[in-house]
Structure formats: C-alpha cells, structure tokens
C-alpha cells in the first residue's frame, strides 16, 4: 500500500506537473542566460581578472552562492548587500514543494488515505515526495545553469574560480583555495539543506497553514542572511559561508548533521501532527 502511495505521489506530484517544470525551466534559463552573458561580457572587458576561463561551475556558484558574512558594526558604513538571487533561488525551491501536499490532503489524497486505512503511509510518502521533488528541481536548475554556461562560452567543469568570491562579497584573504575549487561537496550539502527546509515547510504547513509557513520560512532565511549561525539552516546552503570555500565559514560536517537532524525531526513531528489533525476540508490556506 505504501508503495502505491509513493507511486501516486511521484507520478502525480512530480512527473505530471509539466507546467511547473516548464515555468522553472523558463525562469532559470532566462535568468541564468542573462546572468552568465553579463559575466562573459565582464570577462571579455576585464581579462586581467580571469587567469582561467569561466566555467559552468562559476555560473552555478554565482546563482546559489549567497553572500559573505556582513560585518556590521554600529556607526560603521558597512551595509548588508542582500543576496537577492540566492534568496529567490531558495524561495523558489520551497515554492515548488509548497502546495501539493496541502491540496492532496484536502482533495484526492483524503480518499486515498481512507482507502489505505492509515495516515502514516500518506505522510511518509509525502516526505519521500518532498525529497524527490526537491532533488529533481535542484538538479534541473543545475543543468539549466550548465547549459546556459555552455551557450555563453563557459568551459564545462565542476571547478569554480576564485573570482566568484568577489561576486559573493567574500573576503578574499580568507579563501581556502587560491585558483579553483570543486563544487561537488557543496552541491550535495546544499541539496541536503534544501530537503531539510522542504520538510520543515511541510510540517509547518500542517501545523499552521501553507501561506504562513512560506512567509515564516522567508523570514527565517532572511534572518540567516543576517546571522552566520548554525541555528539558521540557510547558512549551510550558502557557498559563501561554507568552510569548504572560506576559512571562517560554518563547517560542512556539523551542517550535514544539523540537516539530517532537521529532516528526522520534521518527519517525526509531521507524523504526530497528522495523527491528531482534523481533516475537515475547505479552503483554508
């Protein structure tokens, strides 16, 4: 029965949602293409900064890198430059996981749950859906940015160059590398964090409502931009704050543990919440 749930969620919740994927593809293709084109123009205009040709990894990092820690002190003119691109990316990833569980719970999923005879199968299946959905969307964005990078003359590579740190407002004297660094470790860490955030949002949606859960998550991510702290999970999804790339960054190891902890906690809390929730239906959002 559980695998029937899972099959329904994967096929209906992911693969049949072509419009959503198309929207994501269009948005990130346009964004990435535009973004990378301007980077390429900059590379041509200021070749002295580019000892190595820009790579597709550079483009991905610029998209999801975030920003360095703001060094704000009272009365000192060091403002915070909001990493709007990173914020938009993170909120997009949460948006694509926002409403399917909610609409399913109030609609068709209610019938399926009744036929299955238990609520837990529904919940665990949704958790796996969230994992799959987040991963697929994340990989899709990575592939789009790679494609755009190739279209604008970038080199296909998983190595990012040091000058991306300038874009991300990182302190160049604290970088853990001189020329290039592989993005794969950060790629997987970021994916884990995104999955944790999706599950957190799903649990919050059960407890309050999807709209408010999204608003709180946005506030949580912005607070994480301000504070570099392990309590703000978004920090681990920012390359500019990871000790993989900067010596004062947050350690990836504890980051993995925190993300896993958040995942398991939310799966468990959601299971408890759903077990006691009245499924009244109606249009509450």
């Amino acid at each position: 029965m559980f695998f029937k749930f899972l099959w329904h969620d994967m096929s209906y919740g992911i693969f049949s949602r072509k419009k959503k994927f198309l929207a994501g593809f269009c948005i990130f293709f346009c964004l990435s293409f535009y973004h990378f084109l301007t980077l390429r123009i900059y590379e041509i205009t200021f070749p002295e900064y580019f000892s190595i040709s820009s790579t597709t990894a550079d483009y991905f990092m610029a998209l999801v890198g975030g920003c360095g820690v703001p060094e704000i002190q009272e009365g000192i003119d060091v403002g915070l430059t909001m990493p709007v691109m990173w914020l938009g990316f993170m909120l997009w990833m949460q948006f694509v996981s926002l409403y399917y569980p909610f609409t399913d719970l109030l609609g068709f999923g209610k019938h399926v749950m009744l036929l299955s005879g238990n609520r837990s199968s529904w919940w665990f299946s949704k958790c796996l859906w969230a994992v799959g959905n987040t991963a697929i969307n994340y990989i899709l964005i990575f592939l789009i940015s790679t494609l755009c990078g190739l279209c604008t003359g970038g080199k296909l590579s998983l190595q990012t160059n040091w000058y991306v740190a300038r874009e991300l407002n990182m302190r160049l004297d604290l970088l853990t590398f001189e020329d290039t660094k592989n993005i794969l470790p950060f790629f997987f860490l970021s994916l884990l964090v995104l999955i944790a955030l999706s599950l957190l949002q799903m649990t919050l949606s059960l407890a309050i409502s999807p709209m408010f859960s999204y608003f709180f998550l946005a506030a949580y991510l912005i607070a994480g931009i301000y504070y570099q702290n392990a309590a703000f999970l978004g920090n681990y999804a920012m390359a500019a704050r990871s000790d993989i790339y900067i010596s004062t960054g947050l350690s990836a190891g504890p980051g993995i543990l925190v993300a896993l902890w958040v995942i398991f906690l939310n799966v468990f809390l959601g299971y408890l919440l759903l077990g006691h929730k009245d499924l009244l239906g109606g249009g509450e959002g």
Binding site: I27, L31, Y34, H35, T38, Y42, V84, M85, L87, G88, L91, W92, F95, L98, Y99, P210, M211, Y214, G285
Partner: peptide, 27 residues
Amino acid sequence: NNRFVAVFAPYLELLFLLASAERALVF
C-alpha cells in the same frame, strides 16, 4: 486558479527582477 501561485509567484518574480537589474548595472 492556484492561490499560492497568485500570492507568491509575483514575489519570486520581483526577487528575480531585482537580481537581474542589479546584475545588469554592476560595474
């Protein structure tokens, strides 16, 4: 007909527009 798209898609679009505009004029 999707309330979440109506409420949050413009917000996301605004963020992407802000990022693009910032990018366009940098340097």
